[in-house]
């Protein structure tokens, strides 16, 4: 019975691993091998696909752009949303209550709904087709989730702690910086890893807001190259592997915080 359960669990997990396996296996095979038997492991693996995609495509540029955009976005999200969460935690005015409620609606907003006007707003301030414009939008778009995680976590920090510090004469900003932020570290880890994965994988906002001239993120680059690589499958799978490796590594290193952040609302 115990062995049967373990076997069943392994089969189910393997089933979920299959598409990822397909990417990894076929990135190291030649085209005829891929076409003949896509599901076979790479026997005598070749690096032709990997080196080919690096020499032909804009993969390296895309990886650098995606790293830059993802890194800046999550750093900005971490700072501004923990600040908002702290402000909401400390204040009970109608303004903070309204902001706290309205920002929750950001959690359900589908991106296609607002991208056309977001482009117009960014154009109005001269940030259209630019990295800063995209970074600011992604920060605004994912801030509601980060604020939710931070606020949930702050419930375990007694308000009296900050109030005691303020009686001692510390300003709110310095309390936030020296008392609250260090306490928030586990919530920050969750915010960074979850938003990091989401921002990295984001496709439609960079496609629309960066335009064709600014250089691609890896996701946009992958999308644009699909037609191009239709004859060279080894390179297509290698491209997919390059898009996936960073998120997988990030996830495997910090998976504890990933699950904890997502379940913050589910197991309280």
């Amino acid at each position: 019975m115990r062995q049967l359960r373990a076997l069943l669990a392994i089969v189910v997990s393997a089933f979920f691993l299959f598409p990822l396996y397909l990417v990894i296996a076929n990135a190291f095979k030649t085209d005829p091998e891929i076409l003949r038997s896509p599901a076979k492991p790479p026997i005598g693996p070749t690096l032709d696909g990997m080196s080919g995609v690096l020499s032909v495509g804009d993969v390296t540029g895309g990886l650098v752009n995606s790293l830059l955009i993802t890194g800046s976005t999550i750093a900005l999200i971490m700072v501004v949303s923990s600040m908002l969460a702290f402000a909401l935690h400390m204040s009970n005015s109608w303004i903070s209550n309204t902001v706290g409620t309205v920002i929750l609606f950001g959690l359900i907003l589908p991106t296609p709904v607002i991208l056309i006007p977001v482009f117009r707003v960014l154009k109005y301030v001269g940030l259209e087709n630019s990295f800063p414009g995209l970074i600011l939008f992604l920060c605004a778009y994912y801030a509601p989730f980060a604020v939710l995680v931070y606020r949930g976590f702050m419930r375990s920090i007694p308000r009296e702690l900050a109030e005691a510090a303020s009686i001692d004469g510390a300003s709110l900003a310095s309390i936030y910086w020296s008392v609250i932020l260090p306490l928030l570290r586990p919530a920050t880890a969750s915010v960074l890893v979850i938003c990091g994965v989401w921002v990295w994988n984001e496709f439609l906002p960079p496609l629309v807001l960066l335009g064709p001239l600014q250089g691609n993120t890896v996701t946009v680059g992958l999308f644009r190259s699909v037609g191009q690589f239709d004859v060279n499958y080894g390179q297509l799978f290698s491209y997919m592997l390059f898009v996936s490796i960073p998120v997988l590594v990030f996830y495997l290193l910090l998976q504890r915080y990933f699950v904890r952040g997502l379940t913050a609302g589910a197991t309280k």
Binding site: P19, V23, N201, L222, M240, V243, V247
Partner: peptide, 9 residues
């Protein structure tokens, strides 16, 4: 792991 992969991939 599937949840962290790009929907495009």
């Amino acid at each position: 792991a599937p949840f962290v992969l790009s929907p495009l991939v």
